[in-house]
Amino acid sequence: MKKILTAVLLFVTYCTAAQRNRLSEDHENFFRFGAKGGVNVNKITGQSYKSGYNYNYQVGGFVQFNFSRRFGIQPEVNFVQTSSEFSNYPNDIYDDLFRDGSQKKSTLNYLEVPVFLNVNLGPSKRIKLQVGPSYGGLLKQTTDSLKSNGNIYKNAEWSAIGGLWIQLPLINLGARYKLGLTDINAVDDCQTWKSQAIQVFVGVTF
C-alpha cells in the first residue's frame, strides 16, 4: 500500500509540475520590447514603372502591450528603404522629367510607424496574426537623371499591413504584406503611383 501511495504521490507531483511549466511557457507578459531587421521587397505600381520587385532593407524596434492571452497592441518605429525603376516606354508622359541618361531609378527612405493589433492563433502565444495601419514619413528621395532638383514623390503615405509573427522565447521572426493606400505621385494627377511590399524579418524580444 505504501508503494502504491508513493507512486500516486509522485505521479500527481509530476503532473502538477508539468502543468505549471506549461502555463509558465504560455504566459504572456503584459509589456515586451525588442528590435528586428530584414528585407523589404517592394515595387511601385503605375504606368511609368517596371513591374518587377526590388530588394531593399528595413530595421527598427517595437513594443508590445499584451492585454490578454489572445489580444495585444504592437507599435513600431522602422527605417525602411524602397526603390523603383521607371520603364523605357517611348510614349511615357513623364519623359520630360529626365535627362537623356539611361538611369531612371529612385531610392526612397521612409521612417514608418505602424500600429498592429496582435491576435494569438490557437492555444499558444507563439504565433500572432498582425493587422494594422502604417504611417510613413519620407526622409529622403533620390532619383537618377532628373532634369531638375524637384521632388516627384509625396512626403508621406498611409499603408495597410498584415502578416504573421512567430514569437519564440527570445527570437522573433515573421513576414508581412504592405499595401500602399496613398497616391505618392507629386508630379500631377495623370497617373496613380502606389507602393506594395513583402517584408520578411528576424529579431530579438526581451
Score class of each variant (00 low, 15 high):
1 M>T: 14
2 K>A: 15
2 K>I: 14
3 K>L: 14
3 K>T: 14
4 I>F: 11
4 I>E: 15
5 L>R: 04
5 L>S: 11
6 T>S: 09
12 V>R: 08
15 C>N: 11
16 T>D: 01
17 A>N: 08
19 Q>L: 07
22 R>K: 11
25 E>F: 12
25 E>A: 11
26 D>G: 00
27 H>E: 14
28 E>K: 10
28 E>G: 06
29 N>T: 08
32 R>I: 01
32 R>E: 14
33 F>A: 15
36 K>N: 09
36 K>R: 14
36 K>G: 02
38 G>I: 03
40 N>Q: 03
40 N>G: 05
42 N>C: 13
43 K>G: 11
43 K>H: 15
44 I>V: 14
44 I>T: 11
44 I>H: 03
45 T>P: 01
45 T>I: 14
47 Q>G: 05
48 S>M: 05
48 S>T: 10
49 Y>R: 01
58 Q>C: 04
60 G>N: 09
61 G>T: 03
65 F>S: 08
65 F>K: 03
66 N>S: 08
66 N>K: 06
68 S>I: 06
72 G>D: 07
72 G>F: 04
73 I>P: 02
74 Q>R: 06
75 P>Y: 10
76 E>V: 03
79 F>G: 03
79 F>N: 05
80 V>Q: 10
81 Q>P: 00
81 Q>N: 09
82 T>P: 00
85 E>T: 15
85 E>V: 11
85 E>N: 12
88 N>T: 09
88 N>F: 06
89 Y>Q: 05
90 P>D: 05
94 Y>M: 02
98 F>A: 03
98 F>R: 02
99 R>D: 11
99 R>Q: 06
99 R>K: 13
100 D>W: 04
101 G>D: 08
102 S>H: 07
104 K>R: 15
105 K>V: 10
105 K>A: 13
109 N>K: 08
111 L>F: 06
112 E>C: 03
112 E>K: 02
112 E>P: 01
112 E>L: 00
113 V>W: 09
114 P>N: 02
118 N>Q: 12
119 V>F: 05
119 V>Y: 12
120 N>P: 00
120 N>Y: 02
122 G>W: 05
123 P>Y: 13
124 S>L: 09
127 I>P: 01
127 I>Q: 01
128 K>Y: 01
131 V>T: 12
133 P>F: 09
133 P>Q: 03
138 L>A: 04
138 L>D: 00
139 L>G: 10
140 K>R: 13
140 K>H: 12
140 K>S: 12
144 D>Q: 13
144 D>F: 01
145 S>D: 14
147 K>G: 08
148 S>E: 13
148 S>G: 07
149 N>I: 04
150 G>Y: 10
150 G>E: 14
151 N>Q: 13
152 I>T: 14
155 N>G: 15
156 A>R: 00
156 A>T: 06
157 E>T: 11
157 E>F: 00
158 W>H: 04
158 W>T: 06
160 A>R: 02
161 I>P: 00
163 G>S: 07
166 I>D: 07
167 Q>D: 13
167 Q>C: 13
175 A>K: 07
176 R>E: 15
180 G>S: 10
182 T>I: 07
183 D>L: 09
187 V>C: 02
192 T>N: 08
194 K>S: 13
195 S>L: 07
195 S>Y: 00
196 Q>I: 01
197 A>K: 08
200 V>R: 03
201 F>I: 07
201 F>Y: 15
202 V>I: 13
